[in-house]
Design a protein around this nucleic acid. Structure first.
Length: 201
DNA sequence: GCTCCGATTATCT
DNA sequence: GATAATCGGAGCG
């Protein structure tokens, strides 16, 4: 169907410059089996021009998905223990990804509780990239998965939701680049500057 | 090989 | 607010 692009087409939604398309994922629906959650916080990571990005120095075995087509899941292990989940962006061959930092659980609360613990505060169920993947049951085995079909999917919101922007959390380089986006009034991470963060911009 | 160091989190003061 | 835990990658020689 020619004309205006389908806003619910994940790959088309993510095909543009990552800092522009990242906030479009806010309000989107992330689903893994019976667990459904709404995306409320993301960060944009680009390629050679973004020194904070894994793809900054070119492709490696780990970051390969960032160089592939948009709409795939890029999973990596952080600090030896935490899995972080990203969605690849920009055209096939151009490295970029959107880090999923926080979601709010819409359905499947019981399953999430089994994974995260019954005593965890509601606001901490999936606030933070490591907690998010634990809550959704996302692991390194999901690296490279197409999020348009299957058990694990991401459906963009039909229309852009209101959002705010600020610097990315915990990055040493390009520390002032305002590439974190979140939905006001939802539980998101509190900002932490990296110790000895570079000046840039 | 070998070293350095996190796109984090839980726990402490 | 500050810091330890923890280990796979990336960078370098």
């Amino acid at each position: 169907m020619p004309g205006s692009p389908d806003p619910t087409d994940l790959a088309a939604t993510l095909a543009g410059p990552v800092a522009e398309v990242a906030p479009r994922l806010l309000g989107g629906v992330l689903r893994h089996g019976d667990v459904v959650a709404r995306v409320v916080e993301v960060e944009a990571y680009a390629g050679a021009d973004d020194p904070a990005s894994h793809a900054h120095r070119g492709p490696t075995p780990r970051n390969g998905v960032m160089f592939g087509p948009p709409g795939r899941l890029y999973c990596y292990l952080s600090h030896g223990i935490h899995v972080c989940a990203n969605v690849s962006a920009e055209a096939d061959g151009v490295p970029a990804a959107v880090l999923l930092r926080a979601v709010t659980v819409v359905e499947g609360d019981r399953i999430v509780r089994e994974r995260r613990g019954s005593r965890v505060a509601v606001r901490d169920l999936a606030r933070g990239p490591g907690r998010l993947t634990e809550a959704l049951g996302i692991g390194l085995g999901h690296d490279g998965q197409d999020l348009a079909h299957g058990l694990l999917t991401l459906a963009p919101a039909p229309a852009q939701v209101a959002f705010e922007a600020g610097p990315r959390i915990g990055v040493r380089r390009a520390a002032d680049r305002p590439w974190r986006f979140w939905v006001p009034g939802t539980p998101v991470s509190s900002y932490r500057r990296h110790r000895g963060a570079d000046q840039e911009w």
